[in-house]
C-alpha cells in the first residue's frame, strides 16, 4: 500500500516541487488545539506558500491561537463527532470562500489514559466521517493523516528498520491506543485509490520535546525510568519542528497517495536517553513492569502507560525513511535538547 499514485495537486502540470508560481494551498487542520495542531497552525500561517489556514477543534478558540493573523488564520469550533457540525463546516462560507483544498487530520486522542467507546468514536469513526466529507466535497485534493510508529507489529523477527510495508499490529490484546490508530490508518488506506483526492499517511517516530506531551516524554520525565531487565532496545525520537516540517512537505509536495515513515535525528537506547535526560534506568523483570507502572500512575508519579509500549521495550523499532527522503525530500534537522546533553559531549 505504500506505492504512490498519480499525483493531483491544484493546478499541477508536472513536477513535484514547491515552485513559486504554483497556486497556494489552503489548509484545514482538525484538532488544532493539540500540541502538533498549534505548532502547525502557527507555522503554516507564517508560510507564504500557504494561502489560508482554517483550524477546528471542539470548544472556544484556545488562547495560544489568538495572536495569529486573522487574514491568514481562522478558528472555527467544530466537533468531528457531530455530523451536523462537520457538514456545516464543509458547506460553510469559510470553507468555500477560502477554497480549502487540503485537510490535515490531527483530531486524535493523544493520551492512552483516555479509553472507551467515545474515544474510539473520535479516533476511528471521526476519521472515517471526515474522510467521507472530504471526498464528497469535491474540493479537497489532499488528506494528510498523522499516524505513529506504534502501529507496527514488533516481535523477535522484526527487522531493525521497518519500511512502510511492514506488518501492522492487529493483536486484539493490544492497547486501545494502538488498535484505534491501526483501525484509523486502515480506513485511510482503503481510500487511497479514490479519484480526486490523495491520501497521505505520515507515521512518526516518538515525538519528544518540552511541552509536547505524549508517551515518551512521560516515560523519560518520570521520577524513575523503569525498563525490562535484559533488554535495551534502540529508540528513535523526533523533534516537533521536524514533525511540522514533514507535514508541511506532505501538504506542499506533489507526491500522490502514499505512506511515509518520519524519523528524527536522535537514535540511541532507552538507557542512554534516560541518562541524557538526567534519569537513571532501573531494570525490572518484565512481568513486574506492568504492575509497577500501574502503581506509579495511581500515585501520580507518571503519566506513562507501559501497556502501549510493551513490545517496544523489548524489540528495536526504527523507521526506514527511504521513501520520505526520496519522495517527500524530508530529512531530520533538529536534535532533542536533553538536560544532560553536554555531559555526553564531555
Amino acid at each position: 500500500m505504500a506505492t504512490a499514485r498519480t499525483p493531483r495537486e491544484p493546478g499541477a502540470k508536472g513536477g513535484n516541487g514547491e515552485g513559486r508560481n504554483r497556486p497556494k494551498h489552503n489548509v484545514l487542520i482538525t484538532g488544532v488545539s493539540s500540541t502538533a495542531g498549534r505548532h502547525l497552525a502557527m507555522h503554516l500561517a507564517a508560510d507564504p506558500r500557504i494561502g489560508f489556514v482554517l483550524g477546528t477543534a471542539p470548544g472556544p478558540r484556545p488562547r495560544f491561537l489568538a495572536g495569529l493573523d486573522p487574514k491568514r488564520f481562522l478558528y472555527l469550533p467544530s466537533d468531528i463527532l457531530r455530523p451536523r457540525q462537520v457538514r456545516d463546516l464543509f458547506h460553510g462560507a469559510h470553507f468555500k470562500e477560502h477554497g480549502i483544498d487540503t485537510v490535515v487530520h490531527l483530531a486524535f486522542v493523544s493520551h492512552p489514559n483516555l479509553k472507551g467507546r467515545k474515544v474510539h468514536r473520535l479516533n476511528v469513526e471521526g476519521t472515517k466521517g471526515l474522510l467521507d466529507r472530504c471526498m464528497e466535497s469535491g474540493r479537497v485534493r489532499k488528506f494528510v493523516f498523522k499516524s505513529s510508529d506504534a502501529v507496527y507489529k514488533l516481535d523477535p523477527s522484526t527487522p531493525v528498520y521497518l519500511d512502510e510495508n511492514a506488518d501492522l499490529n492487529h493483536d486484539p490484546e493490544a492497547d486501545q491506543w494502538v488498535q484505534d490508530r491501526v483501525a484509523a490508518e486502515m480506513i485511510c488506506r482503503s481510500r487511497m485509490d479514490s479519484a480526486g483526492m490523495d491520501v497521505v499517511i505520515l507515521r512518526f517516530a516518538s515525538i519528544v520535546g518540552r511541552n509536547v506531551g505524549g508517551q515518551m516524554n512521560a516515560y523519560f520525565d518520570g521520577r524513575f525510568v523503569f525498563k525490562a531487565l535484559g533488554y535495551d532496545p534502540l529508540l528513535n525520537l523526533v523533534h516537533m519542528k521536524d514533525v511540522i516540517e514533514a507535514i508541511r512537505l506532505a501538504i506542499l509536495k506533489n507526491t500522490g497517495s502514499g505512506i511515509f515513515n518520519i524519523a528524527g535525528a536522535d537514535t540511541a537506547t532507552v538507557t542512554t536517553f534516560a541518562e541524557l535526560n538526567g534519569r537513571r534506568c532501573i531494570a525490572l523483570p518484565e512481568h513486574l513492569l506492568e504492575v509497577v507502572n500501574w502503581a506509579m500512575r495511581r500515585l501520580k508519579m507518571t503519566d506513562y502507560y507501559y501497556s502501549v509500549d510493551r513490545d517496544r521495550m523489548r524489540y528495536t523499532c526504527l523507521l526506514d525513511t527511504t521513501r520520505a527522503r526520496e519522495i517527500l525530500g524530508y530529512a531530520p534537522t533538529r536534535s532533542i535538547e536533553f538536560r544532560e546533553y553536554r555531559g555526553l559531549e564531555g
Binding site: 536522535d266 537514535t267 540511541a268
Partner: peptide, 10 residues
C-alpha cells in the same frame, strides 16, 4: 556512530 555511541544496527 549515529551520535550517541551506537551504529545503525545497535
Amino acid at each position: 556512530d549515529l551520535g550517541y555511541g551506537y551504529d545503525p544496527f545497535g
